[in-house]
Design a protein around this nucleic acid. Structure first.
Lengths: 260, 260
DNA sequence: CGTGGGGTTGACAACCTTCAATAACTGTGG
DNA sequence: CCACAGTTATTGAAGGTTGTCAACCCCACG
């Protein structure tokens, strides 16, 4: 049950990549080896700053983080949530500067993959490359769904939909038990995420609680009636692409390398 | 001035990739060669359907298309606009099914790159691979900005911001002249894009027209006072990443291959 | 010359925001 | 153990931005 020391950090990530394709021992070790520079961030602390070049790719090992943009009037819009096992976008190293910031919502442990290590990893492990590429595709699918969420849905549906999404994503990395998971966001942060005022988030949560759908206390989320919640949110998990991958078009050398 | 027949189709795309890094003749020819199966789509026709596997990657050669999701009540949310030179996401071939549909807004000419051709291209041209990867990163940055747009901004700001974005993007591929560009969207489609009712889009456009900021007639957009519009929208183009790329970490063989 | 889609406008309603006040909770130091 | 400060949560009242409904106009097109 306990992984080795070197595999503890990429564990959640590996679990996610495993949904895409089998991952060999060599690939696991290479990924673990590429993760250097473990760092710990306090709530509110920035991992990545808008308008600055990225120094590498962070892997969230533990805790919750968010992508956000600061707005002219001082408010902020959270445009993505990063959970354990998530990557801060491999492609960031291609860009001259970041278009958004990333900060810790809870205490966050993150490992860094340097740009050189990213390049090496992608050069030497084509199948892993595909898997990592797949995670970025899923991240983007999630962002698109967020456009729908803040654009189309009512406050109630938005909150419900976010809860469903985070629940499914945490389930995929083994962080759900007894219909419960962590969700260490204040109501103000939920508002920044869902483009709602904290006041209205509160009213909505009160309503959900009284309807015996959901409780959210001290950063712990419990879904009391998951089917009802998903129905109310209009939630359909297919955009999370947790059903694996297409049969890949492989290069010749990959065809020899199908050992799980 | 006129490109050869084989380079006419990827012309807009090449112009965009050129913002990222120089593209060699060999790369240009390879890209052109990989584009097969030119197709023409009428307004409203689907290029790609949600919940179906993608058959390859489309390159928009001419016309406007959009990514959209259908909603339970029959409405739709447009979650992205595809302009000439844009790709329908390279990574789609990794996914078992699409999480959104793509349809033509105007008459669209699109070329298809088959999954096999994508794989070959990525295998043989590392620098081109980086450039293509960069375009997907920019697409995602745009989607994130859309979350901000529909979540945070007022109707007026939303419309203004969309106009600025499309103007900049078309400018980058050489499709702007005299402060004018094409924008063949009905007010209903603008509403689907901006999460506004067509009625309110209309009111907003009337206001902008009367303020001598913008005209939009018969699919032609003219920015009468671009600085004022950008200021009003809170538009800052840095998320479009048109300023090129980071010095790449290259593989050895790439270091020998820096001819433009 | 009729028909249908898109554009324009008005009246009214709804959802959500803002402002404001209070209560509950968390952590800190005496 | 309690007092205190700071943050978070809760609730009420009033107002604003935007949606809905409905009507009308215009134009393109067959």
């Amino acid at each position: 049950m306990p992984t080795t020391g070197s595999l503890a950090r990429p564990d959640r990530l590996l679990r996610k990549l495993g949904k895409f394709c089998p991952v060999s021992e060599a690939e696991k070790l290479a990924l673990a080896a590429s993760m250097s520079l473990d760092r710990r961030f306090h709530p509110g602390e920035n991992l990545v700053r808008e308008r600055k070049p990225s120094e590498g790719v962070f892997v969230i090992v533990n805790g919750f983080a968010c992508r956000y943009k600061l707005l002219p009037d001082g408010r902020r819009q959270i445009v993505g949530v990063l959970l354990p096992g998530d990557l801060c976008d491999l492609r960031a190293i291609l860009l001259k500067h970041m278009d958004h910031s990333i900060s810790a919502l809870s205490t966050v442990e993150a490992a860094m993959i340097t740009p050189d290590a990213v390049t090496e990893l992608l050069d030497e492990f084509p199948r892993l490359t595909r898997a990592l590429w797949w995670t970025t595709a899923v991240d983007d699918a999630i962002t698109r769904e967020w456009v729908v969420n803040v654009g189309y849905r009512t406050a109630f549906e938005r909150v419900a939909h976010l809860f469903c999404e985070i629940f499914w994503r945490l389930e995929a990395v083994g962080l759900v038990r007894d219909n419960q998971c962590r969700l260490p966001l204040t109501q103000t942060e939920l508002g920044d995420t869902l483009a709602l005022s904290s006041v209205h988030v509160n009213r909505t949560l009160m309503y959900m609680r009284r309807a015996n759908l959901v409780t959210l206390q001290r950063g712990q989320l419990e879904l009391l009636d998951r089917p009802a919640l998903e129905a109310a949110a209009g939630f359909d998990a297919h955009y999370l692409h947790l059903d694996g991958c297409n049969p890949p078009t492989l290069r010749p050398q990959q065809r020899l390398d199908n050992s799980g």
